[in-house]
Design a protein around this nucleic acid. Sequence first.
DNA 1: TTAAGTGCAAAGGCTTTGCAGCATA
DNA 2: TATGCTGCAAAGCCTTTGCACTTAA
Lengths: 143, 143
Amino acid sequence: MRRNRNEGNAVGGHPLTAQRRLLLDLLRDAGGHVDARELYRRAVSRDGSVSLATVYRSLSLFKRLGLVDERRLNRVCCCYEIRQSPEHQHLVCRGCGRVIEFRSPLIGELIESVRREHGFILDRAELCLEGYCPECNSEGHAP
Amino acid sequence: MRRNRNEGNAVGGHPLTAQRRLLLDLLRDAGGHVDARELYRRAVSRDGSVSLATVYRSLSLFKRLGLVDERRLNRVCCCYEIRQSPEHQHLVCRGCGRVIEFRSPLIGELIESVRREHGFILDRAELCLEGYCPECNSEGHAP
DNA sequence: TTAAGTGCAAAGGCTTTGCAGCATA
DNA sequence: TATGCTGCAAAGCCTTTGCACTTAA
């Protein structure tokens, strides 16, 4: 893919090239939990000439601009997701591998209590809960 | 280091070799937050012939046996720590990099609420809070 | 012309694995 | 002897980086 003309909107002062637009679209469609490799695969299937380096560089830019969040949902690699309005956390099922998003007011309370007790100003809270979902529990997949 | 005679206690049915004993000692002394590379450096300084492969293999064994916990405190590598009685979580300062352990009853409440609302049985909760500690805040290191 | 984005390939860093040798039972 | 641990080296992955080319202002 040769770089196309700036496609209208810029992102944080950086031109929205065709590659960046494609990657942002894919991230939006994915609705979260895509790793760089998978994003690259999807990008290539739409445009065979996108490079993996551009995927990483774009993700790095999106992170800096606060457009996407980087999460560690497994041991090996990072997952990326479009930043959404409500703060949310993840539940990972060790049995079937699926990831569920959830929200809880307790997270906010926790952050506030840490600020009160330790004087920390927090700008990022990442909570990863692992266990077994109801289905895997009932089917005896849990150990 | 040639393998020494089993030094008394076995760990989970596996012999406590000199290497494993050394690594467990170092993990205990470290009191948490050591990555594999650092553990390897410390091990080598006490015994020049320990290999990095043994460090990883031992850590993997310790994890399986539940002796150590693996944490992701930064983007790059894992940290390991001896499993301690009280559940605790980590506060990471983005300014000076120091890591503070803390406990909160809210974590337990959170796990219970997830069980109630989603039916998940959780066996691992990893919370990583990032921000700026009081010192870095007052010195203006925070952005 | 200048600054910045891209693709390609190579390199970097962390982790795992294959293999042969040796120790323990 | 048989099993399992170790060191060494190589390979595997994920991610970053150097370079030359191209594009847009």
